[in-house]
């Protein structure tokens, strides 16, 4: 099964709210995708992820309409603990997600909760420690770690459950740039090596854009752009999310009749494309 998410005509309104937070969402996603979702605060992106991991309707009350299939399951009829096996969620602030005495215990916790056997737990914890290079830190308390390390532990403890879908809601909001880069790159590796589907909500496009295989922009509860990041980022819809400097420079060059062939998503890409253009002209 390649298609992991199928939403058709989905609407959601929180209890007590007058307006729909999600309006006519049509969204399909497959394994192996790295989907970047962005949009102004209050656009509905966090609400959308709550529909995908079953927090809506299991924990948040409201009016939910439309067809929702996640890993083949109907979230309206599936209890949260069952969804948690397939959909892992990492939040903005790892401090709110980590609460045990050591990194090792933290990674084991989710597995214990889902009732795995002791040997399986031991094996999976070891595997996660190695995969995330956390072996040296396994006996440390999460609060002794840096923000970037904490976020790694949070992701490791989710990956140990072997979910099919990994959702990250602004995972780098409190991280410094290099730690943010490490976390987003790590997700890219997970997508490629495990074939999972990653859905990442981010405002920091200058770091996130180059890893994404697909970009979605939301505004006022609707999906207003969805597709190849290189196309979406130069669409007029992208103006509400602020485009990274590399893309701005690309656009300015185009307006000066310097065409770079493709839209660069990182400084490296822009520099290489520019060098190609000037070399071609020399020939």
């Amino acid at each position: 099964m390649n298609t992991l998410i199928e939403l058709e005509g989905v609407y959601f309104k929180y209890a007590g709210s007058k307006e729909y937070s999600l309006k006519n969402i049509n969204f399909k996603a497959d394994k192996g995708e790295y989907i970047l979702i962005t949009g102004p605060s209050g656009c509905g992106k966090s609400t959308l992820t709550r529909v995908l991991n079953g927090l809506i309707p299991n924990f948040y009350n409201g009016e939910l309409k439309g067809k929702i299939k996640v890993v083949g399951l109907d979230v309206k009829k599936t209890p949260a603990y069952k969804m948690a096996k397939y959909v892992g969620t990492v939040f903005q602030d790892p401090e709110n997600q980590l609460f045990l005495s050591t990194v090792e215990r933290e990674i084991a916790f989710g597995l214990e909760n889902l009732g795995f056997k002791r040997e399986v737990i031991r094996e999976r914890v070891q595997e996660a420690l190695e995969m995330f290079k956390l072996n040296e830190l396994k006996n440390k308390a999460p609060y002794e770690l840096s923000g970037g390390q904490q976020q790694k532990v949070a992701i490791a403890s989710i990956i140990a459950l072997r979910p099919k879908i990994l959702i990250l809601d602004e995972p780098t909001a409190n991280l410094d740039p290099l730690s943010a880069e490490e976390v987003l790159q790590l997700i890219d590796k997970l997508v490629k090596s495990l074939g999972i589907l990653a859905i990442v909500i981010e405002h920091r496009l200058e770091i996130a854009l180059k890893y994404a295989t697909r970009m979605i922009i939301m505004d006022k509860g609707k999906i207003i752009a969805d597709g190849d990041p290189r196309k979406v980022i130069i669409s007029k819809e992208a103006n509400i999310v602020g485009i990274p400097k590399v893309v701005e420079i690309y656009k300015r060059l185009v307006s000066e009749k310097v065409s770079l062939n493709t839209i660069p998503l990182s400084p490296e890409e822009l520099a290489k494309l520019f060098v190609k253009v000037i070399k071609k002209d020399e020939e």
Binding site: P177, I207, V246, P267, K272
Partner: peptide, 20 residues
């Protein structure tokens, strides 16, 4: 300082290192 320089500066360094 473990910081990422502005994208504009990054571009100019990379170009410089590519011989531009």
């Amino acid at each position: 300082a473990r910081l990422l320089p502005p994208q504009v500066s990054q571009i100019s360094w990379i170009l410089y290192n590519l011989g531009v």
